[in-house]
């Protein structure tokens, strides 16, 4: 089966996010009120072949742990979906 993998990489809670705070200040400067806790991450998408969803998830998880994120400062939210 082929699965779509969608990975959202974010800075861990407590890790300062200079991009997020800069954007937050800019929203206020633009007149948007009440925009708080802006955090900036990145998304990585790819397709992966695996026997089933469990296998696909475990490979993607390992890929995130070893390569796609730096666990010291980042964490990943993984979504897997079978390609229709």
């Amino acid at each position: 089966m082929v699965y779509d993998a969608f990975i959202e990489v974010n800075l861990r809670e407590g890790i300062a996010d200079p991009q997020g705070s800069t954007i937050e200040k800019a929203t206020a400067n633009l007149g948007f009120e009440g925009v708080v806790n802006v955090r900036v991450g990145k998304c990585i998408r790819f397709q992966i072949e695996a026997e089933n969803e469990v296998n696909a998830s475990s490979v993607v998880q390992e890929l995130c742990d070893r390569f796609l994120t730096n666990p010291v400062i980042e964490e990943a939210i993984i979504k897997i979906q079978v390609v229709e």
Partner: peptide, 17 residues
């Protein structure tokens, strides 16, 4: 070296961007 785990911690974007 930090990515390789030979030294601890990480280097992220400068505080002032």
């Amino acid at each position: 070296l930090t990515e390789a785990g030979l030294l601890p911690g990480a280097l992220q974007k400068n505080a002032g961007l």
